[in-house]
Design a protein around this nucleic acid. Structure first.
Length: 271
DNA sequence: AACGTCAGCAACCGCGAAAGA
DNA sequence: GTCTTTCGCGGTTGCTGACGT
């Protein structure tokens, strides 16, 4: 239903349509943008012959008419990623949407509010689900029995507690530099890189790698040097060997060095 | 069949940031 | 440097259809 609303502009009171868009309006908008591009939203509606405000046109274009938009059927993997990214970024829907090609911030926000916010899945739950999935596929999670190689045996189940502690909320710049990466370059390795940087760069004004327990995981710096393992939080003692007493810790894996050397953390961390 | 309730989703609104004059 | 305009984001509203009584 389209209703008319008065809006005061430079040329006095003008009537603008509100509510659901009609197919005719959609067509006008698409035609105009194809010819002239999607800039100058303020003046676009008048030029395109639409009785809409610029904001409304922008929203319609970005969320529904723009090429490459995926609608509905959010897969389990996408949900999983949304939950994890929400854990990391909070309600920064546009950033989360940027990691999900074809999805819009509005759609993700709606999906979160209607489906995911009611669930109480934690990072731990997701990792448990992942591990179960892997065990289901391969029969056993131990690397020695794994036909796909030793990496399949790792269980980097970082606890939500650690994850939240690690979240560098005072280091928005670093977070931004990571989330601004093109989707093709999105790799959890980047996450680990910049968390190790936190420690290297002097911990200015934010949570340091140390505070966040990053070095507990034995980060590898970009120059290839291994950050010393400072305590046994993750089941590895100060000498770098496995400590059975610490194995109850949330982060557990069969070979720490292999985990650090893994070229595809994303596979283990984000799926 | 009529009515009420609820969930899902499209769209709007207000605000802050960025860009331009 | 300041003011104005424009853009983009996140929160919220309200419409619609499905379902239950």
């Amino acid at each position: 239903m389209v209703k008319k609303t008065e809006r005061v502009g430079k040329k006095g009171v003008v009537m603008v349509n509100k509510g659901a868009w009609t197919a005719e309006e959609d067509q006008k908008l698409v035609d105009y943008i194809r010819t002239h591009g999607d800039k100058k939203w303020r003046t676009l509606p008048a030029k395109a012959g639409l009785n809409r405000c610029g904001k409304s046109c922008r929203l319609r274009w970005l969320n529904y008419l723009r090429p490459g938009i995926k609608r509905g059927n959010i897969s389990e993997d996408e949900e999983d990623l949304i939950i994890r990214l929400h854990n990391l970024l909070g309600n920064r829907w546009s950033l989360i949407a940027g990691r999900l090609p074809g999805r819009t911030d509005n759609e993700i926000k709606n999906h979160w509010n209607t489906h995911l916010s009611k669930q109480t899945l934690t990072i731990d739950d997701l990792n448990l689900k992942l591990n179960t999935k892997h065990e289901g596929v391969h029969g056993h999670s131990h690397p020695s029995n794994n036909p796909l190689g030793p990496m399949q045996g790792f269980k980097p189940t970082i606890s939500e507690e650690h994850f939240d502690a690690w979240l560098p909320e005072n280091n928005d710049e670093l977070v931004s530099s990571w989330v601004d990466l093109p989707v093709s370059e999105f790799d959890v390795e980047q996450l680990f890189d910049f968390t190790s940087m936190l420690d290297v760069e002097g911990n200015e004004g934010g949570s340091s790698g140390s505070e966040l327990g990053v070095e507990d995981y034995g980060m590898t710096h970009q120059d290839g040097c291994q950050e010393p393992i400072k305590n046994d939080l993750c089941g590895v003692n100060s000498q770098g060997s496995l400590d059975p007493q610490a194995m109850c810790n949330p982060l557990e894996f069969d070979d720490f060095d292999q985990f650090i050397g893994c070229q595809d953390y994303e596979l283990y961390f984000f799926h």
